[in-house]
Design a protein around this nucleic acid. Structure first.
Lengths: 130, 130, 130, 130
DNA sequence: GTGGTCTAGACCACC
DNA sequence: GTGGTCTAGACCACA
C-alpha cells in the first residue's frame, strides 16, 4: 500500500479515505486481517494514535471490526462494502453536478464536456473552492 | 445574493467560492462595482475581517480590483472571467474522474452512470473523503 | 456540574454519559453555549483531549454542535433531545428486563418486586455482570 | 448450553455472567459436576485460559468448588445460590432505578412505563452510557 | 481565545 | 503482541 498525504485535509481523514478505498476496491478483501495499527502507522509514517483514530472511524462505519486481541478485520459483509462504494460514488456524482451547475454548466454541457476530458487536463490550480 | 455556510470549511473560503461563483455566473457582471466590504459582511452575517480576507484573495486572482477611493469592482476582462470558469470546471472534472476511478469505476461506467443521476440521488452521508 | 468517575468504563465514555444526562435533564438547556473544552476539562479534572473526544461523540449524535470559533452549543432541536431521552430510557428498560429474566424472574415478579425497592437497597456488590 | 459474546466486554467477564446465570437459573443444578475447563472452553470457542479465569472467579464467589481429582462442581448450598440470585437482582433494580432517575423519570413514571414495555421496544442504539 | 489536529510516550486489559 | 485509553504538550486556522 502506498500512502500519500496532502495538507488540505487532516491526516486521519486522508487515512480513512485511503483505507476505505483499499477496502472498496479490493486491495483489502472482505474478511481479511489488517496489519496492526502500529504496523500500519509506521508504514504510513504517522503516529499510531492517528492511525488508531482512522480505524475507529472505519469501525463505526462497519467497514472493519476489531477482535479483542486477534487484530482488526475487514468486514465479511460484501453487501455493506458494495453499498459503501455506491454511496461514495453517488456522493461524488452529486457534488460534481452541483459544482458544475453552480458554474453555470447545464446538464447537457456537462455530459458533452466529460468524454473529451483526458488524463492530465492541464494547469488547473489547486482547490476549485466551494 | 443569498449566503449560506456549512461548517466543514472555513467561512472565508466559502465566501470566496460564493462570490467567485457570482462573478463567473454573471450575478456580479464584469465592471460592476461591488458593495463595500462592510455592507457585504453584514449582508452575509460574517465578520468584516473575514469578508476582507475573501476579497483580498479574489483580488489576487484578478477577478476583482479595488480603486483606492471608488471601491471594489469586478474585472472588466471577460476573457479572464471565462478562463476562470473553464479552469474551475476542468478541475472539477479532473477530481471527479480521479475520485470515481479510485472507486473502481471505468470511464465507460462513469459516462453511462452520470445521465441517470437525477436530483437527490440517495442520502450519501457526509464527505466521501479524499 | 459535579463530575465523578468509576474505573469500570473509559473516562471519555463516562464524560459522554454525564454530559448527555446534563443535556437530556435540562442542566444544559437547548441552544445554550457550553463551557469551552479546556474549561470543562479542568473542571472535570481530565485532559482536554479526553473531553474533546467526548464532545466529538456528542456532536456526532447531534446533541451538540460546534461553531467554528464561537464555541460549542447544545442543539436547539428539543425533539432530538427528547428523542434521546426516550431512547436511553427504552434501552435501560430493555436491559433491565433482559437481565432480570435471565435471572429467572417473570414479568409479574419484576413488576411486583420493583415498587418495594427503596433507596439504599443494601449490600449488593459491584457489577452484577452480563 | 449456548454461548454468545459481545465485544463490548471482556470474554472472561461474559463467561462468568453466563455460567453464573446457568447456575442461578438451574441449567447447572446444585451439586452437579461441571464439564472440564477444556471441554467448556472448546464448547464455548474460547481459550482454555480464559475459561479457567472465569472458573476461578466463580470459585471465589462460592458458586462452584473444585475437588482435586473429581472435577468441578456446582455448590450444593441452595441458599447461597438463591442469595446470589437475589443480590444480583437487587443490584439490577438499583442500577435501573438510578439510571432512570438520572434521565428525569420519577418512580411513578417508571412504574407506569414498565408494564407496557414489550419485546423489542424500538431500536435504541448501543450502550446508554453510565 | 476557540475548536481541531498531531505527536510522543505511557499504561492497561486481554489472550 | 493486540487493541484501547489517557496524558502532556504543542501547533494551527479561524474570527
Amino acid at each position: 500500500m502506498k500512502w500519500y498525504f496532502s495538507n488540505d485535509a487532516p491526516i486521519y481523514a486522508q487515512l480513512i479515505g485511503q483505507i476505505r478505498r483499499g477496502i472498496v476496491s479490493g486491495v483489502f478483501p472482505p474478511g481479511e486481517r489488517l496489519p496492526s495499527v502500529r504496523e500500519l502507522a509506521t508504514e504510513a509514517g504517522v503516529n499510531p494514535n492517528t492511525m488508531q483514530r482512522a480505524m475507529a472511524e472505519l469501525e463505526r462505519d462497519g467497514l472493519v471490526y476489531s477482535q479483542r486481541t486477534a487484530g482488526r478485520f475487514v468486514t465479511e459483509d460484501r453487501g455493506r462494502i458494495d453499498d459503501f462504494r455506491r454511496r461514495l460514488a453517488a456522493e461524488h456524482v452529486r457534488r460534481f453536478l452541483e459544482d458544475m451547475e453552480q458554474l453555470g454548466f447545464s446538464r447537457g454541457e456537462i455530459l458533452s464536456l466529460l468524454p473529451q476530458a483526458t488524463r492530465k487536463e492541464g494547469d488547473a490550480h489547486g482547490d476549485p473552492g466551494m
